[in-house]
Nucleic acid binder design. Structure first.
Length: 183
DNA sequence: TAGACGATGACCT
DNA sequence: GGTCATCGTCTAG
């Protein structure tokens, strides 16, 4: 796996391909890196659980952007959640980044989170640890202050299951969790 | 313009 | 394991 996973044909390939890739945040000049271990795929207009199911709005506009774009939205009025846009502009397909393992900048992440455990094992926690907010909505993940770099670590296996926290299209097993590392 | 709800997380038991 | 805080966004009227 050397090509950017968000260029894959199928959004499910994009999702699994992202596992093991490294998020490098330099928000506020503080570097925090995290390896992706949990993602979910959303298929835009054909997926009732997707924010883009009803077409573009001001909120989800960046979801219709080019591959490698970051889509950030506020959840429950409290948390920020981030997605990687996959495939061509105009087709809303995205991968929700649900969890990662902090591999660099532990102290910064811990300070932002206000605790030293459970730093990035949920979508809202991940964005908080990396300093990601709505200000980065529409950001190009090939550039600072937030980059997605790879090829990633080889995952030992991929566990699939139903997506979390949604009420529509719950039958689609589009949640992907890395089952340890191969190396 | 008002009402409903949500791709969650923290805290308490 | 269960409950609740909290507010941006969408939709209907």
């Amino acid at each position: 796996m050397t090509a950017a996973p968000w260029l894959a044909e199928d959004i499910l390939e994009v999702a699994t391909g992202l596992l093991g890739w490294r998020l490098v945040s330099e928000v506020d000049g503080e570097r925090v890196s995290a390896d992706l271990v949990e993602v979910e795929a959303y298929a835009g207009e054909t997926d009732p659980a997707s924010h883009a199911f009803r077409g573009p709005t001001s909120r989800n506009a960046s979801m219709f952007g080019p591959p490698g774009t970051l889509y950030v939205y506020r959840s429950y009025g409290i948390h920020w959640c981030m997605n990687v846009v996959g495939r061509e502009p105009g087709v809303a397909r995205a991968v929700l980044l649900r969890g990662a393992k902090i591999v660099e900048g532990f102290e910064t992440a811990a300070r932002r989170r206000g605790r030293r455990d459970h730093l990035a094992d949920g979508p809202g926690k991940l964005t908080q640890a990396l300093g990601v907010t709505g200000a980065l909505d529409g950001h190009d993940l090939g550039r600072a202050p937030l980059r997605l770099v790879g090829p990633g670590r080889a995952v030992g296996g991929v566990v699939t299951g139903p997506r979390v926290g949604i009420s529509k299209a719950t039958n689609r097993p589009w949640r992907f969790v890395a089952d340890g590392w191969a190396d």
